[in-house]
Design a protein around this nucleic acid. Structure first.
Length: 290
DNA sequence: TACCAGGTAAAAA
DNA sequence: TTTTTACATGGT
């Protein structure tokens, strides 16, 4: 009951440390040895278990979201086999044998998170993003009581104390004002981007059925979403194997650190085909723990 | 105190 | 067409 199998080895803490490394993520909260997230209005607790992870509660609505969150779509065994032919990747795979990158389960969350991270350090991005979640995110219906309000009694699930919020919905953000976003630390430009994306005439969920190039074309047609943001959407939301965010500063540093002879980071991605996405994540992990 | 950090669009040249 | 600039926060 409540278990999801994960291909082994799986290093739970190493894989999910992205949610604490750069700062607080109020929508993916690490608490008491587990990761907490609001899924379909309910607080879900994810903890390591023998052969996979324990999910509480777990139902048919929650399972696909958790599978997306944990990056279970990524073919890690195939990547590790591929990595044996590339010395840099082979060493990274050996250092982080159970590392499976987590993904953004929701497309709007992925896009807004990218906008917050444009140009500024991830520390700054996390701070702004957390204030956005605090301001517009909703507490789960059956988690512990919040300041001033909160559901009391008749809880199906006892309060965990994780104090996690759902990432703000597209509909809620669309109703916000530019000034409300600027107060949270968004630049005027980024506030415009976020509102424009929230109000855009584009079904983000439909993008999952389109090829990489078409997804990039549709996203970059929106003001505020450039190639970098579209590439990370492919990599960290759609789990596309060949996504390669060549413009990313961190990835550029990683590639240049491990392949000093490289002059064109975009072209260098070809050597990792068809595993550019996982290669990028492993190179970034290797750089972070250099 | 400055300067830089997982970009982007718009202005200026 | 290519180059330069403004942008706001947090860490060092």
């Amino acid at each position: 009951m409540g278990l999801i199998a994960v291909p082994q080895p799986y290093d739970f803490e190493r894989s999910l440390d992205r949610f604490t490394f750069w700062g607080v993520d109020r929508a993916n909260v690490w608490h008491d040895g587990g990761l907490h997230r609001v899924v379909a209005g309910r607080e879900v607790r994810i903890t390591p278990a023998n052969g996979g992870v324990r999910i509480e509660p777990l139902d048919d609505t929650i399972e696909p979201v958790v599978r997306k969150l944990l990056g279970l779509e990524l073919d890690l065994p195939a990547f590790h086999a591929f990595a044996q032919g590339e010395p840099v990747l082979a060493e990274a795979a050996q250092r982080f044998p159970g590392f499976r990158p987590p993904l953004a389960p929701d497309p709007f969350e992925a896009l807004v998170s990218s906008i917050t991270a444009q140009q500024v350090s991830l520390h700054a991005a996390f701070a702004v993003r957390s204030r956005l979640i605090d301001r517009f995110g909703e507490r789960s219906a059956c988690s512990g009581s919040g300041p001033g309000e909160g559901v009391r009694g008749n809880r199906e699930v006892p309060p965990t104390g994780a104090n996690v919020l759902a990432f703000p919905t597209r509909e809620r953000v669309a109703r916000a004002s530019e000034a409300e976003l600027i107060v949270l630390g968004f630049s005027r430009r980024k506030a415009e981007y976020v509102l424009g994306v929230a109000r855009a005439d584009l079904d983000f969920h439909e993008l999952a059925s389109l090829p990489d190039d078409e997804v990039k074309a549709r996203l970059t047609s929106l003001r505020g979403l450039g190639e970098w943001s579209a590439d990370w959407f492919l990599a960290r939301h759609l789990a596309r194997p060949e996504a390669w965010p060549a413009g990313d500063l961190g990835l550029r540093k990683a590639v240049l650190a491990f392949y000093p002879e490289v002059t064109d980071v975009r072209a260098a991605g070809e050597r990792f085909r068809p595993f550019q996405n996982l290669s990028a994540h492993y190179l970034l992990a290797a750089l972070r723990y250099l």
